[in-house]
Write a protein that binds this DNA or RNA. Structure first.
Length: 465
RNA sequence: GGCGUCGUGGCCAAGUGGUAAGGCAAGGGUCUGCAAAACCCUCAUCACGGGUUCGAAUCCCGUCGACGCCUCCA
């Protein structure tokens, strides 16, 4: 039985879908105005892993991830570059999609954009006004009236009175209550804008997600996800809008990932302490970023530094070792050792599922993989044949795949293979003659060129590294 | 100030009432000409102080500390 921690109730609950075998999941994507960083990657990876696991458990998943392509920052950046804002955001949408692909994140089943949802957004706002939950201000703005929603604050656990005490809220002249937030913003001079019943303008940040949810998944959804920095105000406002509009409970489970920490602080564009996904991938393979996430708890802060990354990289290499072939000289495994290996594979699978069922305990799931890799490697060391390793390795690959790990050995272009083989052969001859200096020289130089040589009991194996 | 999450070995981290998974690092060993890889072995009483209980890292209260949100933010 799968259990998920629900931000709304602050409890871990049994997972039950609205419709049998179907999961409707909406995850807040990014605002597209510059390169995405590894913090965004963490969020994308968390929900990719959740999605993959749900599918593994037999659910069909409708995974919607939106792009915010109309926004103050986009407009500012576009003005700075002298570029059309929608062209700019489109550029970064394609860019982000490439980043995700490089990270082996499955493409969401749908990726709606604000700029393409305008009619429904306007209709949504009109509906809220009709129901008395919103009002148009004289300046052309439209605001949501927080006091019209008796549940307002239920997701983040805040009360209106307490929030006002913070005094960091700027009181817009047009608002009747300081916590009211914009559904529609009247266009300023020269800004991109759309026609509406309230004059030209553009949507506020929160309304887009309510509208796109409705368009893509309907009035009620199973899982709503995003970073925990979105709990307030974004998701709080989203619930308020959607539930006031439909009169129905909106999302069944609210799932939030913790923040990636760089230098003890949250990584963010505005803080400037960021590493972009591209910068990361230039140095490390995608599996390393994924392993970093898997090693932690998705809800907790994640430490991103050289030390944790080195460990993650080692972890990946270790897992890869389980998938290597049997030794050429393998004499076969004794029957009881073979059944022990089979049992280890079954245990790993059981433990893996048990861990993942417990609110996606990926650290526990990875531990199950490590245990299995140990069994597989020990079996190989003890002379298991390829045939004997096959079943356990297939289980291993299956489970690693659920986590989205590729575990691929690096491949060369293929052109060099024949030459490397020749060098290895020559080196074998050199070693026979005990010319160690020369033999080590070849090994060292190949290492520099990205080829790792390992001398085993029955010959030398090599691979790209 | 308010709301929330959390504090487990050198580091990352699982565990939610019965005497601490896993990984990295470290040390020892097997294998090897050496190296690497792999395998085996060693390595913590769970921030602090009270309380509940036969029994708590796990429940309750308090203290201290960290982080997130309260303003754009994955």
């Amino acid at each position: 039985m799968l259990k998920i921690y629900n931000t709304l109730t602050r409890k871990t609950e049994e997972f039950q879908t609205l419709e049998p075998n179907l999961v409707k999941m909406y995850v807040c994507g990014v605002t597209v105005y510059n390169d995405a960083h590894v913090g965004h990657a963490m969020s994308a990876l968390v929900f990719d892993i959740i999605r993959r696991y749900l599918e593994y458990r037999g659910y069909a998943v409708r995974h919607v991830m939106n792009y915010t392509d109309v926004d103050d920052k986009i407009i500012a950046r576009a003005n700075q570059l002298g570029e059309d804002p929608l062209k700019l955001s489109q550029r970064y949408i394609e860019d982000y999609a490439r980043d995700l692909k490089a990270l082996n994140v499955l493409p969401p089943t749908s990726t709606p954009q604000v700029s393409k949802t305008m009619p429904l957004i306007i209709q949504f706002i009109e509906g809220l006004i009709e129901k008395g939950h919103a009002y148009a201000a004289p300046n052309g703005d439209v605001y949501f009236s927080v006091t019209s929603d008796e549940d307002y604050g239920k997701l983040s656990g805040r009360k209106l009175e307490e929030m006002q005490a913070g005094a960091r809220i700027e009181v817009g002249e047009a608002k009747t209550h300081p916590m009211d937030f914009a559904l529609w913003k009247a266009a300023k001079e020269g800004e991109i804008s759309w026609d509406s019943p309230w004059g030209r303008g553009r949507p506020g940040w929160h309304i887009e997600c309510s509208a796109m949810n409705l368009a893509e998944l309907g009035e009620q959804i199973d899982i709503h996800g995003g970073g925990n920095d979105l709990v307030f105000p974004h998701h709080e406002n989203e619930i308020a809008q959607s539930e006031c509009y439909t009169g129905k409970p909106f999302a069944r489970y609210w799932v939030h990932n913790g923040m990636l920490q760089l230098g003890g602080e949250k990584m963010s564009k505005s803080m400037g302490n960021m590493v972009t996904i591209k910068q990361f991938l230039a140095k490390r393979e995608a599996d390393v970023m994924r392993m970093l996430v898997l090693n932690g708890t998705y809800r907790a802060p994640l430490t991103f530094n050289d030390e944790t990354l080195d460990a993650a990289q080692k972890n990946v290499e270790r897992l890869k070792s389980a998938l290597r072939p049997a030794f050429a000289s393998a004499g076969g495994l004794a029957p009881d050792s073979l059944s022990a290996l089979t049992a280890a594979a079954e245990t790993a699978k059981t433990n893996f599922i048990e861990a993942m069922d417990n609110d996606f305990n990926t650290a526990g799931a990875v531990a199950a993989l490590f245990e299995l890799s140990k069994s597989i490697n020990a079996a190989r060391d003890n002379g298991a044949t390829g045939e004997q390793l096959k079943s356990a390795q297939e289980t291993f690959r299956e489970l690693a795949g659920v986590l989205g790990l590729r575990l691929e050995e690096k491949k060369g272009s293929g052109d060099a293979d024949a030459f490397v083989n020749l060098l290895v052969e020559v080196r074998a001859e050199v070693r026979k003659q005990k010319l160690w200096a020369l033999s080590d020289y070849i090994r060292d130089k190949l290492k520099e060129l990205g080829v790792t040589i390992e001398d085993g009991k029955d010959g030398t194996q090599w691979r790209y590294s």
